[in-house]
Nucleic acid binder design. Structure first.
Lengths: 213, 213
DNA sequence: GTCTATATAAGGATAGAC
DNA sequence: GTCTATCCTTATATAGAC
């Protein structure tokens, strides 16, 4: 059985079921905390059956991370060099916060992998991710040099967007614990806050350079 | 042996050695990924000797988190209601980023605990932490209502400060992977970037309310 | 393809000598 | 207080029937 190219329909389907279950368990418990028992239970399959589709627990984890990487980076890749600079970046912030709200498990999965030193995706970070960030950082830097946004370090801007948006997924319990008894509306407040934060940061100063302070 | 009140000097010392080793291992591997073997090795003690000082692996983890909590929250507690609003908050940002640089293991320890749902410190979050945040949020809200800082949601401001500063500790490998081949200087750049980001966010608009946009 | 049963190893915790 | 030896549970992975 070629792991990368499942042949039958049922193989494809079962691999997807397993990866969905694995996402649920790995994101909640971390790699070591997750057990094949719990993944099998979540998938509705037997443990040996899991290992019929994937050679090992680690292989499931790697397949999961690899399969999600492109989706996870799509919003950044979507920044359009020909768009309006401020609106492009603010749209990116919005999209990332939407992803934190709609796909918190994916966020936590990556977060735990990276906090632990990214043992299984370090090459992805230093390869494709770095390439993409370099590319978009160049776009943002050009915007800054043209005076179309405030002069900001592009990489640290990207980091700050990742940090502030993913925070709502990764530290969800803490956010809820502090905001309680607010309901689910805190994502609306977060949207408004981050829009204000980054719009102020990005908007170039007025002609006199005295607009702020 | 009362765990909370070690009697002899050697007990105190060994408990500290164990907690230091535990911080090293738990922060790198997470609670489940860490093993008593590795903690014992890092502490230079035998595994049963660890369990002479602490009743269980979990007890070590709990003692570690509890012992670090106050230190971890000290910078927020230090925000002075009588100080200059913008400078107080910027000083807090600076202090938090210094802590991310100087105490990354503590940051990663808390990060992993919270990402996994804070099973062992949920009461700390909903109790003392929430109380402290509520208190400081009230201070910040008063500043905003007095027009001494821009009108921002205090809780989301605090979240954004936590997120952006702790990011440099928690996602250190990713930051380094992307910034490579920059050396250790990226914390200076981060300081400058975050000072700019939050100063712009906090500074109240001019009299006409037209300073920005 | 899927299961039951099981091999094998790792890891938390204890017994008991010193 | 500290160690060696060991117990026992949990967990990954495999064997082999169906």
């Amino acid at each position: 059985m070629n792991e990368a190219a499942p042949r039958t329909r049922i193989q494809k389907r079962n691999r997807e079921i397993i990866l969905e279950a694995a996402l649920e368990v790995f994101s909640a418990e971390g790699f070591r905390g997750a057990t094949l028992d719990r993944i099998a239970e979540a998938a509705g399959l037997s443990k040996p059956n899991l290992l019929y589709y994937f050679p090992s627990k680690e292989a499931i984890h790697v397949a999961l991370l690899a399969g999600l990487m492109d989706t996870w980076l799509a919003p950044l890749a979507g920044i359009d060099p020909d768009g309006d600079p401020v609106e492009e970046i603010l749209a990116y912030v919005r999209l990332k916060l939407d992803m934190a709200r709609d796909y918190p498990r994916e966020s936590r999965l990556f977060a735990q992998e990276i906090v632990q030193g990214a043992p299984r995706i370090l090459d992805q970070i230093e390869g494709p991710l770095k390439t993409l960030v370099d590319e978009k950082a160049a776009v943002i830097r050009a915007w800054a040099e043209a005076g179309r946004i405030a002069p900001l370090d592009p990489c640290h801007l990207i980091f700050s967007i990742w940090a502030t948006t993913q925070h709502y997924a990764d530290f969800d319990v803490q956010v809820r614990g502090i905001l309680r008894p607010e309901g689910e509306t805190h994502f609306d407040a977060a949207h408004a806050f981050l829009e204000g934060l980054f719009r102020r940061a990005l908007t170039p100063d007025g002609p006199a350079g005295a607009a702020i302070r």
